[in-house]
Structure formats: C-alpha cells, structure tokens
Amino acid sequence: MMKKQRLVMRTVVLLLLLAAVGYTIYANFFTEKTEIKVGATAPDFELTDLNGNTHRLSDYRGKGVFLNFWGTWCKPCEREMPFINEQYKAYKKQGVEVLAVNVGEPKLSVQKFVDRFGLTFPVVIDREDQVMNAYEIDPLPTTFLIDKNGKIQAIITGTMTEEKVKQYMESIKP
C-alpha cells in the first residue's frame, strides 16, 4: 500500500512539473503573444495611397490580399517588387489584391520608387507606424497572405523569388 501511494505521489508531482514546463515551452514557441499569427484574423487598418484613396483591409473581404511591408532603402524589398508587380497583373483578374505598405517614408521618395518600377498596385504609407505596430513588423520585407475571409494564411519574411510570389498568390485565390 505504501508503495502504491508513493508511486501515485511521484506521478502527480512529475505530471505537475511536466505541465508547467510544457505550458512554458508551448506558450513561448507554439503561440504568438499577440493576435498576429497564422490562422488569426488580420488586424483591420485604414491607410491612404499615393492618389489619395483610402484603403481599408476589411473592404477586401471576399478577395485574397497580398499584404507587403517595405521601405525604399531596403534592397530585398526592391528585388521582389518587380516580381510582385508582374504576378499582380495576372492574379488581379482572379481576385487577388496587392497592398504595399510603405513604412512611413516621405511621399516623394515613395512616389519616385513607384514610378521607377511602374508599380500598378496600390501603395499606401503608414505615416505613424500604427499598422507596423499592429502587425509587429520586423524585419523588412514582410508579407502577409490573407485569404478571402480575412484570415492570415502565411507570414513570409525576407525576399521572395518570382516563382514563390506566384505560388503565394495562387494560394490565396478566392
């Protein structure tokens, strides 16, 4: 009887410790501390593009949104921009929208950049870093794939090849 009691006690203590360790590891690595994670609803935002039109993310429900954060000084962003532009031409008709969020640079710099690459998708400027904070952007470029229900499908950091861009746009086709 003593032996049984001892085994039960040890098992209980070990299980308690395992639960504490398990929770710590789980909370730290398998969940995000914020709402920014794959599967969650992408935080809504409203920003103005270079032509003065406002874009609100929630207005894009029903379409796939390719949400790209970038800066003019960021070379990897520069490399992938033409790819995004090319694929956008093909996928726009299939219900995929591209929203490029510039991280609060002067309108002049952004405009020059857009002109240089002939970008056809809307480019909005996050003047006060609010959207950057909400999406916890680090590093640049970061791309969010948002499906037709407004859920985040994938978060991609770093530069993408044209093949990848195509693949990603295909994946959020409504």
Binding site: V13, L17, A20, V21, T24, I25, N28, F29
Partner: peptide, 22 residues
C-alpha cells in the same frame, strides 16, 4: 534566452530543484 533548448535547461533545473528538495 528565447531558444527552446535553453528554456528546457532552465525548466529541467526547476524540476531538479523540486525533486531534490522533496
């Protein structure tokens, strides 16, 4: 401090502490 194995080491020290003491 954020790597999984470092946290696991700290956690194991915690477990060792509890069981050694008990």
């Amino acid at each position: 401090y954020g790597s999984w194995w470092y946290m696991l080491l700290i956690a194991l020290i915690g477990v060792s502490l509890v069981i050694c003491s008990l």
